[in-house]
Design a protein around this nucleic acid. Structure first.
Lengths: 291, 291
DNA sequence: ACAGCGCTTCCGCCGGGCGAAAGGAAGATG
DNA sequence: CATCTTCCTTTCGCCCGGCGGAAGCGCTGT
């Protein structure tokens, strides 16, 4: 385990992911309650929340009920607590969240049907990717890729793209911490990863094999907002055996451009010229294909 | 320019929807900051948040930065604040939220492609419906129906279903408050609505015309969880002219059953027998497709 | 230059909230 | 049936975290 670099003072947080240290700050206590919930723990009893947040039972009790009456938490039939729809309503307002999804969805759906692969729309958050949309081919790939999933950047297609086009010091920070291994093929060597990123930066897209799930190949490209800034990345995951990477790159390139266009339409913004472009794919006249 | 009113101390909540009064409670202040955001105000400056929440500027400042460092808020390039992806991550954990969406999506997507209509998945929250998924036919129906949208129950297909099968006293509460009118056809008479609900209860589905958008017809059916409890409602909206309600009812009935089955599979639950059923449609062998 | 606005920081006083502890409900174990 | 455990709920007094007034700063527009 790496020592904590951010010096968050000592604390006893049992967070599901790993970080955060809201400590004895007032608002922090409220957030600690929310932090108690995670993918592995969607429904918690009061005392579980208390233990996980490190707050006394009575404090937890009051806070939980405050959140309850506001709608941030709900109580199921067993008396356990879970995240409430009010939070979904709020989250839907995130410009980089379901808003982005809204613009991208039809294109991603189309991509999904044409490639029969898993399609992801991811944005960078800190040093990780968060999926804002994920369309899965029926049964394959058990739980991989859901909305709200958070993954390290080095092992995902979208992450590689987002990292490659991020600030240099952010890249360095990402490279300087331990790179988790998911399969024998996962890139965990900083030098190799650095080479990979350069390649992504140069070609304008990422292709990777078996980084998280073994028999799979992922292709990812960046998505730009109407101002020409990197907004997100989209990827398609298919079985490596039946993959035609160049075709996928081309389709993704078209899709990315289309999403940017729809983002512009949505916000009433005018497109900025000279948008970065995917190389090795003659921009523009992709197969339109409506369902 | 309006003179600075100096925050009249009393509750000056300018909530986007209408209610809530968190007032001087501690946690309430934090939530008031979040409440400042709404569909009409996704990006706010600090002082806007301050005004909307009724909190002093310095308090707002501190709270906002606390939320910022936790990831609940993000700061865009103009320095304005908006909802952050961390909240999306949290919201994705809601059992009645994106979790439910996850199970329902393939079925809804299929429904969308077969009917070419707008498909909604809604759950009840208080006296309103919140959409957990919404798939829109391309350009039609401008902004109607997005994830996280909140609508009164009496005017939406999903709402009618959810209300019809809710507790009697909840129905009464909903009927006892003013029923907003959206079009000349919107049902706003409690007596008429009561009749409508009885009809929905009896038939097992709802059909309504022009409740929110004029030339449209909506068909909705309930969705049950594996325990046989009402979990959500799904609906399809199409132009009234080209609608074949009975076909839609049949397709929706099948879809609903399928969603329940997937929910069961997802949670490892066994299906409870004797699930309520959509009447006037011989369960199971629905007419496949018409496009 | 000045004025107006919005963001940030500081600080002292005050009251909201913390947590120990006790009470209560419900289930497990003997 | 008694007892033990676990979890939830409520109360209460003391204390310290946080509230907000005010001042400082950096914009932008006239």
């Amino acid at each position: 385990m790496p020592e904590v670099l951010e010096a968050p003072a000592a604390a006893t947080m049992l967070d599901d992911h790993g970080a955060h240290a809201p400590r004895t700050n007032a608002a922090g206590r409220l957030l600690a309650v929310l932090d108690a919930f995670g993918p592995r723990s969607r429904a918690l009893s009061l005392s579980e929340i208390s233990r996980r947040s490190g707050l006394s039972l009575s404090t937890t009790h009051r806070l939980v009920h405050e959140l309850l009456s506001w709608g941030a938490l709900e109580r199921d039939t067993n008396g356990r607590y879970s995240i409430g729809v009010r939070l979904l309503e709020l989250a839907a307002l995130a410009p980089r969240g379901l808003d982005l999804r809204e613009a991208a969805f039809p294109i991603l759906d189309d991509l999904h049907h044409r490639t029969r692969g898993n399609v992801h729309l991811g944005v960078r958050n800190g040093l990780e990717v968060v999926y804002v949309e994920a369309i899965r081919a029926c049964a394959t790939h058990p739980t991989n890729g859901r909305i709200g999933d958070r993954w390290p950047m080095h092992a995902t297609g979208t992450g590689l793209v987002l990292l490659a086009f991020a600030d240099r010091d952010l890249q360095e920070e990402a490279l300087s911490r331990p790179l988790e291994r998911f399969t024998p093929l996962t890139i965990t060597d900083p030098a190799e990863l650095r080479r990979k990123l350069a390649q992504v930066r140069q070609s304008g897209y990422a292709v990777a094999v078996g980084q998280i799930t073994l028999p799979d190949l992922v292709v990812a490209v960046p998505v730009y907002d109407p101002f020409g800034d990197l907004a997100a990345a989209i990827s398609v995951v298919v079985e490596a055996a039946r993959a035609k990477p160049q075709v996928l790159v081309s389709m993704l390139g078209d899709a990315s451009g289309e999403i940017t266009r729809r983002l512009a339409a949505q916000s009433g913004q005018r497109l900025v010229r000279s948008m970065p472009r995917v190389r090795g794919f003659a921009g523009g006249h992709g197969v339109p294909a409506t369902a």
